[in-house]
């Protein structure tokens, strides 16, 4: 028995860690599984009727604008096939834009156009689309191809966010976004998702994107994972990923907490992007945020969620800034451990 193999961390390395972890070990680490997330945090805190507020991006944006939050400007909403056939007039004079389904999830059906040469539209990857192909994409969106449950949908044409230089450096193509998970309005964990060559411009961790944990207190990146394994440099560009200060971190937290207040959802994830000129923009609110964020931060979500549950019970009327202060105080990253 390799029992003497105790390392600095409190869990010893065992032979089976190459293959799996026992439920007891995961519980000790405070890891939250899908079943626990659903049964303990989603179902009791997110009433079904509130989902439509966030599943439909048009509604979310309307709410956010009413709250005075900055969101990417909507150039046009395409609701009918008739609108779709007039797409050239809608796209007239737009040189960069994003087309997305209003009810899409997980980045499905999002088409980003960076540049334009006459009637040809160029994606960030350099791929070229004709106007017909764009129209076809829009009619797919309208037919509900990308929406939850396949219901009819409408397509949003939006401002294309120009990410701050600081962030584009961390990503191989694609724009990195910040995900902040909240419970009862307390920010509990945050991460930056950056694309890699492998993930093909997408920010989905299971497709090979990087998950970079961010310290709630300071907005500094503390840890990064690629396919679940800690890394310190970008696998494609070799850029350092740790110790980067997110710009306007307090404003980001502020937007995240406001999103919780305006939707009323108890457990949610807020996705943001940082524009070069405009600053942090709210992109979407997710009522079923995934669990990869714990990998990126190297901390089990339960360690953050349980104190919040307790705090919320003792102090249900806590205000906006009180919540931010609580999170900043309790969830500050410990002294960074050198991982390399």
């Amino acid at each position: 028995m390799p029992d003497g193999d105790q390392t600095a961390s409190d869990v010893g390395v065992k032979w089976w860690h190459r293959w799996f972890r026992t439920p007891g070990e995961l519980r000790d680490l405070g890891v939250v599984g899908i079943n626990m997330r659903n049964a303990r945090f989603l179902l009791p805190n997110n009433p079904r009727r509130l989902y439509r507020l966030v599943d439909d991006k048009l509604q979310t944006k309307a709410l956010a604008e009413a709250e005075g939050l900055s969101v990417p400007e909507t150039f046009a909403v395409i609701r009918t096939p008739h609108d779709a056939s007039r797409i050239e007039r809608i796209l007239d004079k737009r040189y960069s834009f994003v087309i997305k389904p209003s009810r899409g999830s997980g980045g499905k059906g999002v088409l980003v156009i960076d540049e334009r040469e006459g009637d040809l539209f160029i994606k960030p990857s350099g791929a070229v689309l004709t106007r017909d192909e764009i129209r076809h994409h829009v009619s797919n969106i309208l037919a509900g191809l990308f929406s939850l449950g396949g219901q009819r949908d409408c397509a949003l044409v939006e401002y294309r966010v120009r990410p701050a230089k600081l962030l584009t450096d961390l990503s191989y193509q694609g724009a990195p976004d910040i995900r902040c998970v909240m419970l009862h309005g307390y920010p509990v964990m945050a991460m930056l998702r950056a694309a890699t060559k492998e993930s093909d411009g997408r920010a989905n961790l299971h497709q090979g994107a990087l998950g970079i944990g961010i310290d709630i207190a300071t907005g500094v990146t503390v840890r990064a994972v690629h396919h679940g394994k800690p890394v310190t440099k970008h696998p494609d560009t070799g850029v350092d990923l740790i110790g980067i200060q997110m710009p306007e971190w307090n404003k980001i937290l502020d937007i995240a907490v406001t999103c919780q207040e305006m939707t009323g959802l108890g457990y949610l994830g807020v996705d943001l992007m940082i524009d070069e000129e405009i600053g942090p923009l709210m992109i979407e609110v997710n009522a079923r945020p995934g669990l990869a964020i714990q990998m990126a931060n190297g901390i089990g979500l339960l360690r953050r969620l349980e104190p919040v549950v307790k705090q919320h019970k003792e102090n249900p009327g806590a205000g906006h800034y009180e919540k931010i202060a609580f999170s900043k105080h309790h969830f500050a990253a410990k002294i960074r451990k050198a991982t390399s």
Binding site: I34, N35, V222, G228, N297
Partner: peptide, 20 residues
């Protein structure tokens, strides 16, 4: 429906999980 424990696949998914 009220099982809140880990799925077997999660034992593998989180195998590289380590404390920061």
């Amino acid at each position: 429906g009220r099982y809140t424990g880990y799925r077997l696949s999660e034992l593998i998914r989180f195998k590289t999980f380590s404390d920061a």
